[in-house]
Nucleic acid binder design. Structure first.
Lengths: 154, 154
DNA sequence: GCTTGCCTTTGAGTGCGCTCACACCTCTAC
DNA sequence: GTAGAGGTGTGAGCGCACTCAAAGGCAAGC
């Protein structure tokens, strides 16, 4: 299966109705536009996070961001790619400590592929049961809604 | 539509793949076994939460629990039903403050059906986009896994 | 009677993930 | 030149949702 097919397949599984994020966000993971050079405000806006958060992530060593002459951050493609990944993992509930560990593996000079793979496999399990939990909560919510619709004026 | 049909319909909307929790948990929402009389440890175990958390929920007025002669909590069917709902809403990310509001509506003596309905409708939207987000994260995770599988020894 | 264990209340503590305040710097526009 | 918008690093603060500690009550078993 080609990477692009994998992407499409993944997206097919995802659907995403309201919310705004779409295939664009996914593409970000795969693209390699080396001309990207964003300042912190632009980057934060694109990622939907607070600039403070970006500085915080850098402070704790999750990402390394080059500077311009004035010492201001210039987010290049590599930094943005990593941040897209990081924010996606964060919004899906992976704790910062795990991300630190993962990033340490990525940045290690030895071969850590299998360790990273294990982390991703575990996170996949977590995600799956999380989705199941949410779908259960959704069912409960739908049930309440149905109940309320049946008895509009009790 | 009979309650049981509503349940099934809700479940149909939910799918829930792996994860363990199933229609059992949903049934809990609808059943009315008035012989339920659990102590705090049993209740906590059934709900998968810390007994401290149950006391906390009661302290902040989310639920009202009768006592036995010794002053110990005896969770009856009504309390358990409410707690099942509450924990489901909590695990799906509804903040405590919203739950307080919702419970205030439930316990109000005026007709608050439409207000509660609005809250549930809004939460449904939240849940849907949350699920979409998670599916996106799952896609990203699958993508990483696929990448690692393709290059086991780089 | 005394220990053990589970319960009670209340106030205080914890951990996480930001988020802010502060003091300072560096451009651009007027 | 000076105001203003935006940036910098660092330490401290915050909000949430628990989670624990302390001091005590009750009931069963030895």
């Amino acid at each position: 299966m080609e990477p692009d097919d994998a992407l499409r397949e993944a997206l097919r599984l995802a659907v995403d109705p309201p919310g705004g994020v779409s295939i664009e966000a996914l593409r970000e993971l795969a693209r390699d536009d080396d001309s990207t050079e964003w300042d912190i405000a632009t980057t934060a806006a694109h990622l939907g996070v607070n600039p403070h958060t970006l500085r915080y992530y850098e402070r704790i060593g999750l990402v390394c961001v080059p500077r311009d002459g004035a010492g201001h951050r210039r987010y290049d493609a590599a930094a943005v790619r990593r941040l897209v990944f990081l924010t996606r993992m964060r919004t899906s509930g992976m704790p910062i400590s795990d991300l630190r560990h993962y990033i340490d593996l990525v940045d290690a000079d030895r071969d850590t592929v299998s360790e990273r793979m294990d982390m991703m496999l575990e996170h996949r399990d977590t995600l799956r049961s999380q989705i199941a939990q949410l779908q259960l909560a959704l069912a409960a919510t739908e049930y309440k809604i149905a109940t309320y619709q049946k008895a509009p004026r009790p």
